[in-house]
Design a protein around this nucleic acid. Structure first.
Lengths: 353, 353
DNA sequence: CTGTTAGCGCCTTCAG
DNA sequence: CTGAAGGCGCTAACAG
């Protein structure tokens, strides 16, 4: 007794109808005579027919009605990052509403990424490009399916959703400057895809690979330099953006013990700084001001609530999914806005330079 | 210029080889003469061929090499729940390792669930059954694909992964009893799929639909009754397990102001109680002990660190994914273990009854 | 090594 | 309303 896979033709034969009619009985029950339909259903039941196989339908229909979200990290990391979670809520909302499927495509190593993208059964891709997106763009392009790049502008042949990273970063720095801070340190997201962390020198800074990081750094630099503070004089520490943000927080506080304000390039990093400050007995915002970036849900819930640069994360997910499912792939630019909360205040009097 | 979809046959023709050879050039490049292969590649390039279409391959191969995770909530909720996240990390690890795809199948309403399950292109399903799993089991069974139910035993025709819920709950209650507590309250996960929250009376308790909830309640009841405390004398409050846990925490503390120990049926609920206790100025564990269930990563990181019932969440995900991908669907039972941390202590002297 | 051929399972014209 | 037939795009088996 091997595996007598029963297919539509079998059901049709057993029911004594043609295959076309059997198909209709399943897919458009209303147009087939009740009597026949019942016969088909009975046959299906007695044969143990599983219903029309999506694989066949797929090939026939051409369209899959599903989208793939390509993640350039392992899914484990992906699910732990609040930004991604929020983003996926937006994507999922649209998929839910449209009844579309959602495939997760992890690409923790280069080969597997290529293969996954080549063989994903989807109508299009959403590329999470925070880090290392260019590779993914190339892969997706080769597949000749619509795709939209998030946080990266891949060219006119594809969609993209970007936010005003630079303006947001600038606003963050200006906010601190306005409060009277003069001694800064920057805790940055990775600049280069080599896993290195720690203090960043100028040559590394100039070699920045990642779009988002570069833009945000540029925003900080612009604001600071307008206030007469050269970016080269500001300690910059590079950190990974997962649990290891803890280490980054330690490093930046060690590297710039005299800083009164930390520009953290993500909320995950900023929250890690908050936690590390507590550990060191430095009160935020009385002794130290911290500004994040992204405005993930955790930012508003932390104590003190985090001052950060808001970007419409869920909205990005919604737009991205909508673009893929509708087939239109335009370029969308969204704005950022500073959300001032409780983690920033004027520096201690004695430290105002 | 409509849509000149180019397929393998076109490439083959253009390259002057047979379709079979063209196929080999892509899928088994080593067995085709380099010269011909180059010709095929050149033809593909000039025609703009996207590579073999997975849809065709799929139908041919029969196997998809992908699994579907069926979620009976909206994905938005799903991603916010730490239990699910941890579980998915396990699933994702296996998919990563096996190069398998991962589809998310949300089923926020009944019709969409049916359709999603019927039309998912996967080799099998993982059913997250914490709430309302039976419906999903039926749907999956109809599809005649392997599936494994998590936290539910669907019968011998499918896989299942369950943990010793009852024993874990019992251990939690016994721990508190051992510390000297006599005044309890229970904050429970939903009993019935009707969205109701608040105090639970006996008839509702007896009508409990959800397996996990029932087992955990039974565990609490057993331990308490062995200590001479009738479950009917213990205030039980039902709460949703998302952000609305906050409300549940408020309700249970209102309903049982004199309780010295709260048995929370999940860590999400327990953490909400911790937060609410802070708001009310009740110190944990000095004034109030709290025990959770699940041991999500947040439990160990909270302050105070949460005493809770550990279950191997990620391991469950790993096992589930492994079972689907290997085609073997057995029944697996895992153990729970109490993790004693800082949210439990003896009750205040004056309140030891 | 390469070419030919036969489906994988389904849906949808088109003719009755 | 029903039946017959073609083809979606690909791969594997077989014959050269």
């Amino acid at each position: 007794m091997m595996k007598p896979v029963v297919r539509l033709a079998d059901v049709a034969r057993a029911a004594g109808v043609s295959q076309g009619t059997a198909s209709n009985a399943f897919n458009r029950p209303d147009i087939v005579r009740p009597e026949l339909r019942a016969k088909v259903e009975a046959a299906a039941l007695s044969l143990g027919y599983a219903g029309p196989d999506p694989k066949g339908r797929l090939l026939r229909a051409g369209k899959v009605h599903a989208l793939g979200v390509v993640v350039n990290n392992s899914l484990g990391y992906f699910f732990n990052d609040p930004f991604n979670r929020e983003f996926m809520r937006g994507v999922a909302a649209v998929c839910d509403a449209e009844g579309a499927g959602l495939s997760l495509i992890a690409s923790h190593d280069q080969k597997s990424a290529a293969w996954s993208i080549e063989s994903a059964v989807v109508d299009g891709f959403i590329l999470q490009c925070l880090e290392g997106g260019n590779r993914l763009v190339e892969l997706a392009r080769k597949r000749r399916l619509p795709f939209v790049a998030v946080d990266l502008y891949p060219g006119t042949d594809a969609g993209s959703i970007i936010v005003d990273e630079r303006g947001g970063a600038q606003a963050a720095a200006e906010h601190l400057l306005g409060l009277g801070h003069r001694r800064f340190a920057i805790l940055t997201l990775p600049l280069i895809d080599d896993g290195r962390t720690g203090p960043v020198d100028r040559s590394r800074r100039d070699a920045t690979q990642y779009n988002t990081t570069r833009e945000r750094l540029a925003g900080y630099a612009e604001a600071l330099s307008a206030a007469g503070i050269a970016i080269d004089s500001v300690p910059i520490v590079e950190s990974l953006n997962d649990r290891r943000a803890e280490e980054g927080a330690r490093m930046v506080l060690d590297a710039a013990p005299e800083a009164t304000a930390i520009l953290a390039m993500s909320d995950v990093l900023a929250l890690a700084v908050l936690a590390e400050a507590v550990r060191r007995g430095r009160r935020v915002p009385q002794h130290l001001s911290v500004v994040g970036f992204d405005d993930v849900p955790e930012a508003a819930a932390s104590r003190p609530a985090l001052t950060t640069v808001h970007q419409p994360i869920m909205e990005k997910g919604r737009i991205a999914a909508g673009m893929i499912l509708s087939g239109a792939t335009e370029r969308v630019a969204l704005r950022t806005a500073l959300a001032v909360r409780d983690s920033t205040a004027p520096p201690p009097e004695t430290l105002r330079r």
